[in-house]
Design a binder for these strands. Sequence first.
DNA 1: TTCCTCCAATGAGCACTTTTGATTGTTTAT
DNA 2: ATAAACAATCAAAAGTGCTCATTGGAGGAA
Lengths: 250, 250
Amino acid sequence: MLKEERYDKILELLDEEMYTSAQNLANRLYVSMPTIRRDLAELDSRGLLIRSHGGAKRLNSEHILMPANHRKSISPNEKRRICKKAASLITEKSVIFIDASTTALNIAEYLTERSLVTVVTNSVKLALTLSTRGIKCYTTGGELQNNSYGFAGSYAEEMISKFNFDFMFFSSHGINDSGMIVDTTSPAENFLRQAVCRLSAKKVFLAVHTKFGQQAQFNLMPLDDVDIVITDKEPPEKMRDILKGKIIVA
Amino acid sequence: MLKEERYDKILELLDEEMYTSAQNLANRLYVSMPTIRRDLAELDSRGLLIRSHGGAKRLNSEHILMPANHRKSISPNEKRRICKKAASLITEKSVIFIDASTTALNIAEYLTERSLVTVVTNSVKLALTLSTRGIKCYTTGGELQNNSYGFAGSYAEEMISKFNFDFMFFSSHGINDSGMIVDTTSPAENFLRQAVCRLSAKKVFLAVHTKFGQQAQFNLMPLDDVDIVITDKEPPEKMRDILKGKIIVA
DNA sequence: TTCCTCCAATGAGCACTTTTGATTGTTTAT
DNA sequence: ATAAACAATCAAAAGTGCTCATTGGAGGAA
C-alpha cells in the first residue's frame, strides 16, 4: 500500500469516527505503531487532523477551512465519467458556466489550459481547483452558501449578467417523475442558476442515474428548458419519453 | 508504443484504480521501472497525478483542493492580538472590508453575528471561515490569485465599488524605511486594495512588528494614507516620526 | 522507396534516500 | 505508581535518481 493511500484511509476512518487511537489504526491498516505515529504527525502538520496523545481527532468545522474535502463523494466514478463526456462537448474558445455541485466539480479534471475556454463559476471549490491547475477562471462573488460552497445572491447575479454563455453545466438533487428538476439547496442558489440559464445557449444537466425519480422541496426548472442530459445509465422506463432526444449515456 | 500513448494508458489505469504501484505499471505496460518513474515524474509535474513513494495516486477533484504547501502562519499569536484590537475598533452596524492576508484572517475570530457588521472581503479563506461561523459576508468575485487565496481583477473592483466602507483592514509584506507600504503580491491585488482604500473612511493597517523596515518590489500606498497602524511591539526608532499619532500597540 | 544519420527514449547498473518496524529509554495520563 | 504512549535510534528492505550505453524511430538525401 502506498503511503498516500494509507493517509487517505486514516482520514476516511476519522471521518466516520471523530476520534481514533493509534493502536486501532495500526491494527486496521496492518502497520506498526511507529508508522502510524509518523503518519499522524504528518497529517497533523498538513492540517488534516489534530494529533492527541494516544490517537487523533477529526477536524471540526471550526478548524477546517475547506471542510469535507476528504468526505467521500457518492458514486465518484460515475460522476467523473459523466463529466468527461460533458467536457468533450466543450468547443474551443467557448464561454462556459459551471455551477457549485459535487458532480460538476469533476469537469475541472478534463479542462486544459490550452482549450482557451472562459470558465465562470460560483463554486469556491472549482475556483480553487482550477487555480491550482493554472486554468484561469472568473468566480462570481456574493454570499457563500453554507452547504454547497457556492456563491449566490444579487452580487453573484449581477456578475454573471455580464456574460453570454455557450454552455451551462449544472446538477441538482434530482428530477421528479413529472420531469421537473428539483433541488434542496438555498433559493438564492436556484435564482442564480435560473439567471445563468437565461444567458446560456446550451443547458447541460449532469445527473447520476440515482437522480431520476427524486423529489425535493424546490422546483428549479422543467426538463424542457434543458438541452442535454448526461447520465451514466439508461433512465427508468417512465422517464424515457421526457428525456427523449436530449439524453446522453456516458 | 509512443510515450504519450503510455502516458494515457497510465492515466487510464489510474482512472480505475485510484492508487497504483510503479511495479504494477511496469508489468502491465511492458517497460522498465526507470521508464515508469520518469513517466510518473512527468505526469506529476503536469499536474495529472500525485506521485507517491512506490507509485502514484489519482488526482481527484477532492484532493486538488487542499493546498499542498500548508505554510504555517508566522507569529500567529501576535497576529491574533493585533486582530483582537482591530476588531475592538469596529462599531455596530459598520461596513468593513477585510483583505486577503494571513494577518487579517484572524479578525474572523473576533466578529460575532450580533454586531450587525457588514463584512466584505476578497479572501476565500475568510469567506469560508465566516460562513462556517454563521456570519454573513459578501465576497468579491474575480480571478483567484494563486498565492494569497484572494480574488482580484476588474470584476472584484467593480463589486467593491458598490460599497462605502467605514473601515478597511489590511496587511502587506511590510513598510520600508521611507514609510511606504510595500508588497510582493500580484499587482491586481494591489489595485484592488487601492480601490478599496479610496472608498474607506478609516484605513487600518495591521502589521506585526517584523514588518517595519521591510522592502518589496511593489509600492502599495504611503503610510500617510493610513489612519491607524496596529502592531504588537514598539516600532524601531527611525520609524517613530512617520507613525506618530496613528500607531496602536496591542 | 531505401538508406543513413541524428537524437530522443529506454534499460541496466550502481550509489543513495526513504520507508518501515524493532528496540531503547523517556514522557505522559490516570 | 503504573501502564500506556511517546521520541529517538538503528538496520533492513524497498524505492529512487543518476549515469551511460544501447536502441529505435524521425527526418533528410540518394
